[in-house]
Amino acid sequence: PPAPAYFNQETLQQRLLTLIEGARETWTYAIFWQSSVDVASGVSLLGWGDGYYKGCEEDKRKQKTTNPATAAEQEHRKRVLRELNSLISGGAGGSSPDETVEEEVTDTEWFFLVSMTQSFVNGAGLPGQAFFADAPNWIAGADRLALAPCDRARQARELGLQTMVCVPVGTGVLELGSTDVIYQSLELMNKIRVLFNFNSFEIP
């Protein structure tokens, strides 16, 4: 029998892409945090399920003018990216050298990459809070992000994001982020509920 749809990363990726690319608003990324329980400790955990990064063509220019990362920070990001690239390509560097690894890593790219290493235990963090309360959390505006009781939200703000949304869906939480201020939209919430109906094998 086919595996449940939520275990299939291809359909998950397709849902994230459909949501972001089809949205009226400009979202920078979407992440699905998958819930699980550690059998040994009984700890409930939200970990990386999958993510889709859209970014923005103007990210670089925006970053250069408003929030230039220091040279040392850029070097650190490039080094990490080089190592990850080498890990993915098996260290052989592929058939042709990838010069884009040497390009500046924007703040939002870095935020997305760092997200892959994160997890939230027992309702901690913005995704964890949304999951345990079973209620969406929509934070629009840098000032509100700065006040959120969550390190991730504050880091998001420091890296240029202005809106973060966490919506519990099925076996996890869908998180959206944008460098724009985007206010809550019923249309988007409905779209999320339809797209992330995990009882459906079909992508609507």
């Binding site: 990726q13 990386w48 999958d50 993510g51 670089k60 890990l87 884009t100």
Partner: peptide, 30 residues
């Protein structure tokens, strides 16, 4: 440590491929 969980590895692979496409389309960085 060189051993990424599969979900993260796939996500990372997609991210790097898409980044390459995006940057190649934008042309050399000024």
């Amino acid at each position: 440590n060189g051993d990424l969980p599969m979900a993260r590895k796939k996500s990372l692979q997609r991210f790097l491929e898409k980044r390459k496409e995006r940057l190649t389309a934008l042309g050399p960085y000024q």
